[in-house]
Amino acid sequence: MKFGIVTFPGSNCDYDAYRAVVDSLGEAAVYLWHKNHDLQGSDVVILPGGFSYGDYLRAGAIARFSPVMHEVAEHARRGGPVLGICNGFQIACEAGLLPGALLRNESLRFVSAPIAVRVENANTLFTSGYADGQRIVLPIAHGDGRFTADDATLDEIEGSGRIVFRYVDDAGEATAAGNPNGSSRNIAGIINDGGNVIGMMPHPERALDRLLGSDDGLALFESMLARVAA
């Protein structure tokens, strides 16, 4: 299975994603330069974290018009899996691959910390390796992570099981205390209607080794491997 990792000017987690795929999963990965109209036969596309185009205008607003995004959108339309992490989530929202938008953290502070999220839907391409309700710890590192959408959209994604991860407190509850950025309904990650495009602010690719704090991100990559290869 081949993972294509898009490198935008300002991406800084593309290498982490590459190592996650190659070292932790033992699968093939290629970097996809944002200017090329070519996914190089990738089965899965990863939109990595970073600060594409310096977050100018809005996070993800300019990257969404990079040439490669045309192919990424086509891939998504065909049902191909797309994993948007952090800036990748912002880009996916700007591109209309996912609903809503990511706004400045309520605290106005950049937050870089391991945080707890709860798996709200373990029946997706990306989460089948987890259990429903499982509390996992993943790092976040962002200044613009406050997921926002109108109430009708929030009701729709919630009602259809498309909230995949929620920020939770120490007791595993989705409270304000457990919400690091003021995200609507404590949303940390959502999936599209087709179930093939996920966007999440936490970084599973940085949580693959207990020596580095957590290996809770591994199951996400293994889930994709199990389902896409099947």
């Binding site: 809005r58 929202c93 706004l103």
Partner: peptide, 8 residues
Amino acid sequence: RLLANPVT
């Protein structure tokens, strides 16, 4: 298309 985000 670009300058404003229609959602926010």
